[in-house]
């Protein structure tokens, strides 16, 4: 571990990775509980269109990704409200449009390597500007998430009841949409556009298996994401794997182990009860 941290690029990777591990599940908890788990996918694919546009126009691709994500997230919200009974359609539409646009624009990008680095991320190659962006966005997302904790909980639980209790639902949803878009666009550069959605959902899925309350679900999600990042980055360094993909696979493996562990625990408990009764 110490040997790995001698390198500046690995220290940066850990700082960026751990900050993102804290904020992505905060956004992820609300996204999952609002039954919009694929929103991360739609946004990250749309971010690729922004990356391609940024590279073509000669502006920073992360800024392009951010703009595309915000536009995509707001489009999802608009369509979701137009077709409330089939909210998931909004995600499918934006996802398709994002992929289509990214496909068309990527054909005009010079230097495909830079574009491809956004597909699986390049957390060990982030610049000072990008690290600064991760720090700034992480602080902003954490602060807003804490400030709107009660509102986001109530909206995710029951949007109508929240509105009747006086929660400014439209304003909170708008802020949350921007927050999600900014998080996804920054994370796309580090863990990769194809993987960020999984980072948003997997730690939350693990936490939901074990937590006994909403508060614990949020805390456990962040703890899981931090552990996945630490394990994933370390494995990636020593076994020479792609960091973003390794982080996500660590998470998926952990989820499978938790599910299997719960099944075994339940079976053992049931057997003990039967033995006691007989």
């Amino acid at each position: 571990m110490t040997a790995m941290l001698q390198y500046d690029f690995m220290r940066r990777a850990f700082v960026a990775g751990l900050l993102l591990a804290l904020i992505i599940p905060c956004v992820g908890v609300v996204v999952v509980l609002k039954r919009l788990s694929l929103m991360g996918d739609a946004l990250s694919h749309s971010s690729l269109a922004g990356v391609a546009a940024g590279l073509i126009m000669g502006i920073n691709p992360i800024l392009g990704a951010g703009a595309a994500c915000v536009a995509a997230a707001l489009s999802i919200e608009v369509i979701r409200h137009k077709i409330p009974r089939y909210a998931e359609i909004s995600i499918a539409i934006v996802l398709s449009a994002g992929i289509g646009l990214a496909g068309v624009l990527s054909g005009h990008v010079r230097g495909a390597a830079n574009f491809n680095s956004f597909l699986f991320g390049s957390i060990v190659a982030i610049s000072d500007f990008e690290l600064g962006l991760v720090v700034g966005v992480s602080l902003a997302v954490l602060l807003v998430f804490i400030a709107l904790y009660r509102e986001l909980f109530f909206i995710a639980l029951d949007e109508r009841a929240a509105r009747i209790a006086g929660v400014p639902v439209a304003a909170v949803n708008f802020i949350f949409t921007i927050l999600t878009a900014v998080t996804v666009s920054v994370a796309a550069r580090t863990v990769g556009a194809l993987i960020v959605s999984s980072m948003m959902v997997t730690p939350v899925a693990c936490a939901m298996q074990l937590a006994g309350s909403y508060k614990r679900t949020v805390i456990f999600s962040a703890v899981f994401a931090v552990v996945f990042t630490l394990v994933g980055l370390t494995l990636a360094y020593y076994v020479r794997l792609k960091p973003g993909a390794t982080i996500v696979l660590t998470g998926v493996l952990c989820l499978l182990l938790i599910i299997a562990g719960k099944k075994i625990w339940a079976a053992v408990g049931s057997r003990r009860r039967k033995e006691r009764n007989s």
Partner: peptide
């Protein structure tokens, strides 16, 4: 929803 009965009831204190 992964919330306790208490968390759900307290949500309405927002009003």
């Amino acid at each position: 929803f992964p919330a306790t009965a208490e968390e759900i009831v307290r949500a309405n204190l927002y009003a």
